[in-house]
Amino acid sequence: MTDKRKAEEGAMAPWFEAARADAPAPSGDWLARMERLALDEMPSPRPDPAAEAAPAARRGLGARLGTSLRDVLGAVGGWPAMAGLVAACATGVWFGAVPPSGVSDWLSVSAADSVMTLEPTSGFDDVMLGL
């Protein structure tokens, strides 16, 4: 109790002291009901940021595959870049299966005749003879 309050109480101090010592207390049953009321009215817990940042190793296989796919997509430039890659692959496969006529002529035997063969080891022998 502060000195100021004690001074204010004066002759009434013993009465107030008796009343403070005999403070009314609630029953345990009522307190338990108040606790239940508090819990019933309590808002739902917010998501735990620590759980959000949990390591991928603790997640399921599906979640990990999803994460890997997202990583790959991020690396190549997202879905538009992935669409371009798929189109290029499909075109390559198509050219392999049904090559255009101009490409076939270029790859024919006569074209192959003009290919010059380079053999680096023979050049090495020439250098050695020169020495």
Binding site: A23, A25, P26, E35, A38, L39, M42, P43, P45
Partner: peptide, 23 residues
């Protein structure tokens, strides 16, 4: 903490404020 959904805060506040308010 209570507003964030912490049940321990609900119990602590009830035990702290309930008896004083009742008195």
């Amino acid at each position: 903490a209570y507003a964030a959904g912490d049940p321990a805060a609900a119990r602590a506040l009830t035990m702290r404020l309930g008896p004083r308010a009742f008195g």
